[in-house]
Design a protein around this nucleic acid. Structure first.
Length: 189
DNA sequence: TGCCTGATGTTCT
DNA sequence: GAACATCAGGCAC
């Protein structure tokens, strides 16, 4: 088991907090993009809003695998969203990455986002995938390895705000969305 | 500023 | 055949 997997083998709500403030490094050709995770949502198989709620299917297979993998899904006919799998091997849990802050490679992200800049670059789950060029090819990717790696660097507890989740129709009231209070890149305050 | 809607593919029933 | 963890553009106020 990799160190990353160990660090994320915990309940989704805990893992979600631990992912806030962490860095993602994306290698595209000779370029490197680096971002900081500032907004996430937790999902597990006891949760009616989770893809894993109805059990393991070919689509959700990755969610039920070991922690520290990327779960990419396609939604609303035109967008990708990316999750980091968490929990023990066999548990269908994942953390949706809703927003990130650019650290490095902003120019490349602007290209990927068709000239959009500033907070518009990455303040939404589908935007994050566009900016980082994440698509279904990276589904199941191990985040311990290039070309997309997760660097654990958790933010301190007092910077974390907890709210209900966004854009879902079931289990709306569960307080499973977490964001960093100081960030401007939050999709909605 | 804020609501409404179109675009559009994959998965599951 | 319907639902869907979305975004951006248009129009009304």
């Amino acid at each position: 088991m990799s160190d990353l997997e160990k660090q994320l083998s915990m309940p989704a709500s805990q893992a979600a907090r631990r992912l806030l403030g962490c860095e993602l490094e994306r290698i595209i050709g000779n370029e490197t993009i680096k971002v900081r995770i500032v907004e996430v949502e937790a999902y597990d198989e006891t949760d009616a809003a989770s893809h894993s709620y109805k059990g393991r299917t070919p689509r959700t297979d990755v969610m039920f695998g070991p922690a520290g993998r990327l779960y990419v899904y396609f939604t609303y006919g035109m967008h990708y969203c990316c999750n980091v799998t968490v929990g023990k091997d066999g548990e269908g849990a994942a953390v949706l990455i809703r927003a990130v802050e650019p650290i490095k490679g902003e120019a490349i992200m602007e290209q990927n986002r068709q000239g959009k800049s500033g907070v518009e670059l990455t303040n939404g789950p589908a935007k994050v995938c566009q900016a980082l060029m994440i698509d279904k090819q990276l589904n199941g990717h191990n985040l311990a390895n290039a070309p997309l790696t997760l660097v654990l660097n958790p933010a301190s507890e007092e910077d974390v705000v907890v709210t209900t989740r966004i854009g879902i129709s079931k289990a709306k009231d569960a307080p499973l969305r977490f964001y960093l209070k100081d960030s401007n890149y939050i999709s909605r305050k």
